[in-house]
Amino acid sequence: MAPTRTVKNKHAGPRTGGAGGAKRSSDGGGISKPRGKSGGPKAKAPATQVKGRPNLPGLDKSKKKKQRVYTEKELGIPELNMITPVGVTKPKGKKKGKVFVDDKESMTTILALVQAEKDGQIESKMMRARQMEEIREARRVEADKKEAERKAKLEDTKESLRRKRKRTKGGDGQEEESIKAVAATGTKAAKAKKKRVSFAPE
């Protein structure tokens, strides 16, 4: 059992960190070679082989070195996505060289095909342009409406402010007048205070 243990430790050594390592050592038993490839069922197959053979340490080692080579089909791996150059694959039964279009029928066919395709493209382009135009127009109308609303609101507030002002004028009319009078006579009063020089009559 000693050599198997050492082999196992070789593989498991760097990987196992703690509890996992301990578990593996317990369930694997002495046969640990195929463990590297896959876990459960494949680990059992070599175990049966070992059973049939005498438990010689030297023979065991040579067995371990041999690894079964699986073909791609067995593994079920998808085939590699290889690049095949254009020139390499030659269609069999096909003539070499270019195929010219010179007869009227084929020319007409191509022409009709191209024309239909182009017409469709242009039509869709125009439809899209029209739709975009409609959307733009709707947006513009919306923006105009909003602008008008905003202006109306502004006018309303202005009007309300004016009304308020008038009302205040109507309520404190006398005070306003007195202030006005003071303001008006203020300068005159100052003028009246001005000193005058006059000669007394003889």
Binding site: F100, V101, I110, L113, V114, Q115, K118
Partner: peptide, 17 residues
């Protein structure tokens, strides 16, 4: 030479613009 299928398509496609 005459035009090939692809060439003819390209030319007509351009003209159709």
């Amino acid at each position: 030479r005459a035009l090939t299928d692809q060439e003819m398509k390209t030319v007509l496609d351009k003209l159709a613009n």
